[in-house]
Amino acid sequence: MNNFQYSRANDVADVIRLLAADPGAKLIAGGTNLIDLMKENVERPSRLIDISRLPLRNVEETPDQGLRIGALVPNSDLAYHPLIEQRYPLLASAILAGASAQLRNMASVGGNLMQRTRCAYFYDTTTPCNKREPGSGCSAIDGLNRNHAILGASNSCIATNPSDMSVALAALGALVHIAGPTGERTIALTDFHRIPGDKPHVDTNLSTGEIITAIGLPPRGFARNYSYLKIRDRLSYAFALVSVAAALELEGNAISEARLALGGVAHKPWRRLEAEAALRGQAATPDHFGRAADLLLEGAVAGSHNGFKLELARRAVVRTLMQAASGTPQSQAHKKIA
């Protein structure tokens, strides 16, 4: 851990001023990811700007019948918020599939979106890692890559994004509201995280000097037919090997709208509109779901240890869509994959 300055921000303008004044500064919200990385000397901010007291803790209905979720709403509060439970249960479920109760109590929405990969080499400063130290090489490509990406990876990085919440947000078509030195802007969540390309050290399209202020949810919540299924090495408190967020609107047995996103397989939540389009107008059957899975996984390539993810992801997609279609979403409390 390095020495750092500490400032507490009172409002968003304060944050932007402090960020501009110190290019080495980092925001700290719940600290559950940043502090760990600082302890490992992976992150070495010159200053921590404590945003935990900013007034960004509300969940509000917007005029278009959507929701606006403040960036500092704790993950647990969000998961158990009545509006989320009733209207966006897919989001609640994905949050509850992540981390542990204690971590979710501390973790913020903004921090969750910004959490960094769990690639073991990224955490170990004695090993080469392009994400941590651009140009040093990627240890995972020829090393331990069982947990790594099968989609959208590059020759410089095959890390995955570990967030569960983001997978549901991607499926729901969420927006990210950002404030920065030049004002406010909004981008789609699916455009927020990057694929690594030749700049794996850049996780997201948030620019320096900017802060996430809120998440926007469009009105459509898919509250009847949804499921979040997370496959991992133990039944709780582990990162996803593969996770699936599925949401459907059905007319009878016909699909009128479909959303599908994968976690644990890429540098960002993986969504492909072709896969969803292929479902529209189709009957909710395993065959159609399998075809959608194939489209979603098009171009997937395995490394030396993660080949199992190709078939696992396909099967998980089908299972999750079946759960969604039958209105029996995966429980995050039962000791069982349904």
């Binding site: 769990r118 080499y121 170990d124 240890s139 090393g143 331990l144 090495d233 039944l235 709780s236 408190y237």
Partner: peptide
Amino acid sequence: VMDHRFGRIMNANIGEYHIPVNAD
């Protein structure tokens, strides 16, 4: 889990070294 190229243990913490949790 060790990376034998570095002779280093790569899951030296109880987040990544898995033991059963209550759900198991």
